[in-house]
Design a protein around this nucleic acid. Sequence first.
DNA 1: CCTTGATCTCAAGTTACCTTGAGGTCGCAT
DNA 2: ATGCGACCTCAAGGTAACTTGAGATCAAGG
Lengths: 150, 150
Amino acid sequence: MATITKDDVISIGTLAARTGVAVSAVRFYEEKGLIHSVRTSGNQRRFLRSDIRRVSFILIAQRLGLALSEIERELATLPEGRTPTVRDWQRISHSMREQIDQKINLMTRTRAKLDECIGCGCLSLHKCQLYNRDDRMGAAGATGPRLVLD
Amino acid sequence: MATITKDDVISIGTLAARTGVAVSAVRFYEEKGLIHSVRTSGNQRRFLRSDIRRVSFILIAQRLGLALSEIERELATLPEGRTPTVRDWQRISHSMREQIDQKINLMTRTRAKLDECIGCGCLSLHKCQLYNRDDRMGAAGATGPRLVLD
DNA sequence: CCTTGATCTCAAGTTACCTTGAGGTCGCAT
DNA sequence: ATGCGACCTCAAGGTAACTTGAGATCAAGG
């Protein structure tokens, strides 16, 4: 029934403009498998309009501290082929919300422990509990997911 | 009065062991100006015992999302030459605590906005306010400070 | 004295996330 | 048909935060 017409797809430049990311970044996301495109006869990329939303989601998720690989995992749960529905996005965002909650909690707890250590002035990681293995914020070094904040 | 004896200084291996970081990381921190050392006649580094605390602070600050450059700024306010007092550490940690508070606040606000957007399912960055310029979490890309969380 | 583990320097590699540049093609308005 | 901006690919560069490796020296116990 629904035929795909020229108006259903957008160029990489349009996608970039509508989401505010650089064209090079869009190509990068595609290379990483976060978004997909079809090609014209002249080998140019064409994206679905719904990919604007997809890229927007990537940006939001990044700001909330998810790594691209994690974002990819989330996006992979979207239905293939068809444009995601509002419900699809709600489900995915809900799962993300839980991750965010955890991160905020961990950060808050670590802050509290810092306060303790500051209170006594010791800063000793053995006496204080900042190094408590069970409650660490991550020893992933330069490799783990990171939160970008001002 | 107080003469510096052999027992006041520690080797890079000891510092690494006491703080849990790799020897190479200690060298890296020194290169970046976060810690300092003197050399023995045989060109080996010798650190002050108080540098254990200094490195510990670096680790904590990193976990709370500060970049090494920011941590350096904080550490630079410590008195030169003498071992920092409890008061010194308290002051520095207090200033850090404020930064953390801000980050947690921003994260919480962004999460709230995500909820809104999810609520309506639009995910449109123009209709919703996740892109509100005045309240962004940072567009620093791969360059800004990041929070490492599990 | 000699061996062995700890250090030293310096260069290059790693991961995440992109950007920049070179050299070449598409596609649409005039 | 032509010009020019938008695209294409592929390689290389850039930052943060380190690690790894090579080749050489130190330092301390036996």
